[in-house]
């Protein structure tokens, strides 16, 4: 355990903090359930459908995928950043090569238009038809 004990203690403290505060609150707060209170809040309107049925912009998944790649590679760079000064010019070159590959990946995603929130295909299709790309639908504002 050693130095890592603190993480466990702090996590337990966090959970206990919430539990104890809620327990104290439960002694003094009113409990008065009404059907109207249990309704999802939509500014006074009756909700239509469930929130789990709403459509999401597919961009979220693309960004999640790109994130995954970059995050793993950032973690891989950590030991390099720690030790490259002691390992000589070869290590520097290797690290720069790795970074170069990362940048190439980013450039690839960029050129393919996957960093745009408004879908590129949609934009291109509109352009072919002679409409201005500014008029393209924003692909869901979510």
């Amino acid at each position: 355990m050693g130095e890592y004990l603190g993480i466990l203690v702090a996590t337990v403290f966090g959970v206990a903090f919430v539990a104890v505060t809620l327990a104290v609150s439960s002694l003094v707060r009113p409990v008065n359930p009404l059907p109207a209170k249990a309704m999802p809040y939509e500014c006074g309107e009756n909700p239509v459908g469930t929130p789990w049925g709403v459509q999401f912009n597919i961009r979220f998944y693309v960004f999640a995928l790109v994130f995954l790649i970059f995050d793993v590679e950032a973690v891989m760079l950590l030991p390099w950043a720690l030790a490259y000064l002691d390992l000589g010019p070869g290590a520097l070159a290797a690290g720069l090569l790795f970074l170069g590959m990362l940048v190439l990946g980013l450039a690839d995603v960029w050129v393919k238009g996957d960093l745009e929130w408004v879908r590129t295909e949609e934009r291109r299709a509109l352009k072919r038809r002679g409409a201005s790309p500014a008029a393209a639908p924003t692909g869901g504002s979510a």
Partner: peptide, 29 residues
């Protein structure tokens, strides 16, 4: 502290109650 504790109908009760705990425990940790 004195306010009613509401859980919306059809909510995922476990996740709904766990989320503030995770937020606090994460900040503490």
């Amino acid at each position: 502290l004195f306010k009613e504790d509401l859980v919306p109908k059809d909510a995922d009760r476990v996740l709904f109650r766990l989320a503030p705990m995770v937020a606090i425990a994460g900040a503490f940790a």
